[in-house]
Amino acid sequence: MADLESLANGAPPRSAVERVVEVRLPTVHGDFLALGYLDRDSGKEQIALVHGEITPHGALTRVHSECLTGEVFGSTHCECGDQLGTALEMMVAEGAGILVYIQGHEGRGIGLLAKLKALKLQQAEGLDTVEANLALGLPVDAREYGVAVAILNDLGVESVRLLSNNPRKRNALEANGIDISERIPLLIQPNKENFDYLWTKRERLDHSLPHLDGLPG
């Protein structure tokens, strides 16, 4: 929603995020510019990694949800860590790209402890990831993408080539004014621990995962 005071003063609406710091961040994948943001509404700290020169249209972009278990501890229950690394490598190979990393999206937005409780239900009772969330009285997917859009707006980005298998993410970004000129799959080879999880994402959460076809469950 527009900032009413800004409109009354004839000034542009206040951004939902404040860019606090920019610093070079060398990584195992290549060099990036790290941009630290403060979400004015939630108070959460957010980060975007930029490689190369960013243009308003067609930037290779990944909007990535926080996943402590997959990215830090290397959990094989999901593909999040591999997706994060692969996305960064693709940006470096292309010569330019943006990764918007969203804190507060742990467990599709239900939080770390609830995510672990849902995982316990999956292991103990054979529930899938959707059923486990619902059994806990929680939404299947509580993520919102307004802060990602605000960061892309701050970077002057109007349209992107989106690295994602999730059409709901695409729809959310487009609904908030970011044009998706192309959706590029980010497919990771499944393993015995995450095959059922990925199958559920495909069959119940509409993710495009054609590489599961023909694989044994």
Rank of each mutant, 00 (worst) to 15 (best):
G95V: 01
G95K: 03
A96W: 01
A96Q: 01
A96H: 08
G97V: 01
G97C: 00
G97K: 00
G97D: 01
I98K: 11
I98R: 13
L99H: 00
L99I: 00
L99C: 00
L99S: 00
L99M: 01
V100K: 04
V100G: 09
Y101T: 10
Y101A: 11
I102H: 03
I102W: 03
I102C: 11
Q103R: 15
Q103D: 10
Q103E: 10
G104E: 08
G104L: 03
G104H: 02
G104W: 02
H105I: 07
H105Q: 14
H105N: 08
E106T: 05
E106D: 00
E106V: 03
G107D: 02
G107P: 06
R108T: 08
R108M: 07
R108I: 05
R108D: 12
R108C: 09
R108E: 11
G109C: 12
G109I: 14
G109H: 14
G109L: 12
I110C: 00
I110S: 00
I110Y: 08
I110V: 02
I110M: 01
I110D: 00
G111F: 09
G111E: 04
G111T: 06
G111D: 02
L112Y: 09
L113K: 14
L113S: 09
K115S: 07
K115L: 03
L116K: 01
L116Q: 10
L116I: 14
L116E: 06
L116S: 03
K117G: 00
K117R: 15
A118G: 09
A118V: 02
A118T: 03
A118K: 01
A118D: 10
L119V: 04
L119N: 12
K120A: 10
K120T: 10
L121Q: 09
L121A: 05
L121M: 09
L121R: 07
Q123E: 15
Q123P: 06
Q123L: 12
A124K: 14
A124I: 05
E125F: 11
E125Q: 15
G126A: 04
G126Q: 04
L127R: 15
D128K: 11
D128W: 08
D128T: 13
D128N: 14
D128P: 13
D128G: 08
T129K: 10
T129M: 15
T129A: 14
V130E: 15
V130N: 13
V130C: 13
E131G: 05
E131S: 12
A132T: 10
A132F: 12
A132W: 12
N133F: 07
L134E: 14
L134S: 08
A135V: 05
A135D: 12
L136W: 14
L136G: 14
G137E: 04
G137H: 09
G137F: 04
L138T: 12
V140N: 10
